[in-house]
């Protein structure tokens, strides 16, 4: 379960952004809606521990993320939180397989080739394991980045505009796999977006 209480964040020399409280049950899905500048990305960065909140409380299951030290937040994130961004941001020096192996390594998990293979199969990229990143289309790369976010069976999946630069087919497949895996693992799925295609498939939302 994810819950956010009394959360606010203040960038240097600007007014603090306050976030209204919300919570998502285990296995639940939530859209974060709001115009740009309302702090969608800031909220996701706070929840994932990329930013440290000055005020408030972020709790995932039994862990108060905002109480963790930076290094502990890094470890916690690697193990329990999967992140998807607007762009795939795969490491271009590594091939598809190595990108995913790196994810297991950085998450502190054992190398598990079968899992990587089966997830790639599921997103229709079973034959791309040894492809270099530059050979992938935008949609394929984004699907690899989704596999990366899901690979370590995270308790929480955070996606920041995951579909906004994809065509309909790719957007649909990305949304499907995110929801399917969240359901299988009973994990929390939070998507920040203003893409209407996402709104059509998930009804539960929180507006900033």
């Amino acid at each position: 379960m994810l819950s956010v209480k009394n959360l606010s964040y203040r960038y240097e020399a600007s007014n603090p952004i306050s976030f209204s409280d919300f919570s998502v049950e285990e296995g639940g899905k939530l859209l974060i809606l709001g115009d740009s500048g309302k702090g969608k990305t800031t909220l996701l960065h706070l929840i994932s521990g990329l930013l440290k909140s000055q005020n408030g409380e972020i709790q995932l299951d039994d862990t108060l993320i905002n109480d963790l030290k930076e290094t502990d937040r890094d470890h916690f994130r690697g193990k329990h939180i999967g992140l998807v961004f607007q762009k795939p941001h795969l490491l271009s020096a590594l091939n598809v397989l190595d990108n995913l192996l790196l994810c297991q390594f950085l998450g502190g998990l054992k190398k598990d080739m079968n899992k990587i293979k089966s997830l790639l199969e599921e997103v229709g990229l079973g034959d791309k394991a040894h492809a270099s990143i530059s050979q992938l289309s935008q949609g394929q790369a984004q699907r690899v980045s989704v596999v990366r976010a899901l690979l370590n069976d995270p308790r929480l999946i955070l996606a920041d505009e995951p579909t906004s630069s994809l065509d309909d087919d790719n957007a649909k497949s990305v949304l499907e796999i995110l929801q399917k895996k969240a359901q299988e693992n009973n994990s929390v799925l939070v998507i920040a977006t203003h893409d209407h295609r996402v709104k059509e498939s998930i009804s539960n939302y929180h507006t900033l």
Binding site: S48, L50, E70, T71, D74, H75, R77, G78, K79, L83, H89, L90, L91, S92, A93, L102, C103, L106, G107, G108, R148
Partner: peptide
């Protein structure tokens, strides 16, 4: 810089 940021998001610490 994106690669490094992504590594952090995947759980790499500053020291790493």
């Amino acid at each position: 810089k994106y690669d490094l940021a992504i590594m952090r998001s995947m759980g790499a610490s500053r020291k790493l």
